[in-house]
Design a binder for these strands. Structure first.
Length: 485
DNA sequence: TCATCTCGCACGTTTGAACCGG
DNA sequence: ACCGGTTCAAACGTGCGAGATG
């Protein structure tokens, strides 16, 4: 197993995808660039984006070694990526293999996410990096057991506004800041066989979020008070004697969240304390609960020698209640069809919030850039730790502006887009399908029209659109119906 | 003045080294 | 020497709250 941090110590556990946009994005960069409920695989985009991967997904043998003209010889040199990948550059002509439609993904802790989603998930971000809670935990099926894959996570901005907590709810408040450096978190097991990934749920609990744009640890960089949508990508790294390449991206609308440096909604705070084992100390009977803290302060002010409170004394004798058995049953999950965020918006307003998905950043490009490194070859050294991306065409960005809510998934899965995993005992009454968005990794340069989304009536989102790539200003088409391709 | 961010704190959990016995 | 179980301390992950910042 290769650990990304070992392969690219300069990047840490995740990787920058590209330098910051030259001169920033044009005023009002892709507004509402989210592709809401990208519950579709875009066959055409698959081809386009997979084609971009092709040169970077070298064929591997059964053991995951690079195949080449002289297997016994020295390691193959890195494929020379066409750097920089400018907007005017032609895409590789060949139609490469792509992950079959049978590849599916489901969110393991969907119920937990739904509970948070219904309140308006907030994620703390800190300079040193903060883990996500709930964590991303997915199950994958349909992979070739013998082929190698990488699993990656990136976080796409959802909407082009920043938000403000207004005491009771989140409301849009001005334009979003320029996107921070794109990074992608590569699961430490990557690359691993399909069998490995399918054996058990894949957890991304080590993923950390930070607001430090100069973060040296490779954490995913986000802006506070902005809304984001995590995405999970499966990138084929080659099969037995076969060619590598192919990818599929999945989003789970209920995992969208707002970034904060301190929790704004007391409900979220309470839910985190109740659900997160690391926060047990803040539970009602914990020694760090408000009651206990107040008591400590009073004792301190009186100068008393701390006499253990009843709870403390109990804990000394054994595990606190909070460690015995499952945490208290949280309240029944609210109906996710209602979302406090969107509920505060006038119809048609709050474009950002309506759609849980953000702009489509080129992701997983770390692997695309340095695939050989995952197979035991030296990665190229990028300037200042940032590798320029062959796929760094700014940003293909699908982007519809959803109306209505959401950070929450539709109440029911769309009948024909269901990416349901077929298991003998589905753990959820709610079909655990992931939203396969095809391959978003760098997709969308000159792709053909994307199919129309068919999620209504749950989400009356317009069809996704891809923003013409490069070139800063000129490349971007602004909101509305403009920019549809 | 206000909203937001940073930092230190105290607590619980996780992890891995050290130790022990079979 | 090896293996498996236990113990313990350090590292890490939490939310809180005071103070700093813009």
């Amino acid at each position: 197993m290769y650990h990304p941090a070992e392969l690219f110590p300069q990047f840490g556990g995740s990787y920058p995808l590209r330098p910051a946009p030259h001169g920033g994005l044009p005023a009002g960069f892709p507004q509402g660039q989210a592709a809401p409920y990208e519950g579709f695989r875009y066959p055409d985009l698959d081809g386009v984006s997979a084609a971009k991967f092709e040169p970077f997904c070298p064929p591997l043998d059964r053991a995951g070694r690079l195949l080449g003209p002289s297997p016994a010889g020295p390691p193959l040199p890195l494929p020379a990526p066409p750097l920089p990948y400018g907007g005017g550059q032609q895409l590789p002509p060949a139609e490469p293999p792509r992950l079959p439609p049978s590849v599916r993904m489901s969110l393991e802790n969907r119920e937990l996410w739904k509970r948070f989603c219904a309140v308006g998930t907030e994620m703390i971000i800190t300079k040193s990096g903060r883990r996500m809670f709930p964590q991303l935990k997915v199950s994958v099926t349909g992979l070739d057991p013998e082929a190698k894959y990488l699993l990656l996570v990136d976080v796409a901005p959802a909407g082009a506004s920043r938000f403000k907590w207004q005491g009771q709810r989140w409301e849009a408040s001005g334009k979003a800041e320029l996107p921070p450096p794109d990074r992608v978190y590569i699961h430490p097991d990557s690359p691993a066989s399909g069998a490995h990934w399918m054996r058990q749920p894949v957890s991304f609990h080590r993923l950390k979020l930070t607001n430090n744009t100069l973060d040296p640890h490779g954490h995913l960089i986000l802006h506070s008070m902005h809304r984001y949508q995590p995405r999970v990508h499966v990138v084929g790294a080659g099969g037995p004697g076969g060619r590598g390449g192919g990818c599929a991206s999945f989003t789970f609308p209920e995992t969208a969240f707002l970034t904060v440096t301190a929790y704004q909604s007391p409900k979220i705070t309470q839910m985190k304390i109740e659900s997160n084992p690391f926060a047990k100390g803040f539970r009602e009977n914990g020694m760090n609960s408000k009651r206990e803290r107040d008591a400590r302060i009073k004792r301190k002010m009186r100068g008393d020698v701390a006499e253990p409170t009843r709870n403390e004394a109990d804990c000394k004798r054994g595990p606190c209640d909070s460690t015995q058995g499952p945490p208290p049953e949280p309240p029944a999950p609210p109906d996710c069809s209602f979302h406090p965020i969107s509920s505060s918006y006038p119809p048609g307003g709050s474009e950002e919030l309506g759609c849980p998905l953000g702009g489509v950043n080129p992701s997983a490009e770390a692997y695309v850039q340095h695939p050989a490194a995952f197979h035991g070859l030296q990665p190229p050294q990028g300037p200042a730790g940032y590798a320029s991306s062959p796929c760094a065409a700014p940003e293909a960005a699908a982007a519809p502006k959803p109306v209505g809510d959401p950070g929450c998934p539709p109440a029911k899965p769309p009948p024909d887009q269901s990416n349901c995993r077929t298991t003998s005992a589905p753990p959820l009454t709610y079909p655990p399908y992931g939203l396969d968005v095809g391959c978003l990794l760098g997709a969308g340069l000159d792709g053909p029209p994307a199919p129309e989304l068919r999620f209504p009536p749950f989400l009356p989102c317009p069809p996704p659109r891809l923003y013409a790539p490069p070139g800063p200003p000129a490349g971007y088409l602004e909101g509305g119906s403009k920019g549809l391709f």
